[in-house]
Amino acid sequence: MAQISLTVNGKTVSADVESRTLLVEMLRDKLHLTGTHVGCDTSQCGACVVQVNGMSVKACTMLAVQAEGAKVLTIEGLVNEDGSLHPMQEMFREHHALQCGYCTPGMVMSAIDLVNSHPEGLTEEQIRHGLEGNLCRCTGYHNIVKAIAAAWPIMHNKVPMAAE
């Protein structure tokens, strides 16, 4: 057992973990942040994606001890204090980009990173290619692609977020 401390969703936390504990296991089992899911054991589905130090990573393919001192952001941390959602979450809802919701947290975390790293713009092809690490079995991706395209201008301050 090792004690590690890190920042999760803006709060400093510490936890006792085994060396073999995965980051996703720590988040789910120790910190009860069950929004981050596990959909595979070969690092391919992206259900577990969170941000570590601003980069989207697969929390199932990182040891908790590797996150010592890191800043971790999970889907729960995207929701503002007043309960309002991140524009990407809003656009997923607006465009019906989720059905069973299982892939959704990872999909949203990946999508935010994708949009953030393309300030110059994003084509549909780039979005589809950029989602290579995330599987969804429900939606057929159509509406996910639409939601991400709609979130881009909002996140880059090109248009104000449409009031619902």
């Binding site: 929004g35 959602l85 997923f92 919701g101 959704t104």
Partner: peptide, 10 residues
């Protein structure tokens, strides 16, 4: 149902 799924509260 989307609000809970999108905020990780499923």
């Amino acid at each position: 149902e989307d609000l809970r799924f999108l905020s990780g509260r499923g």
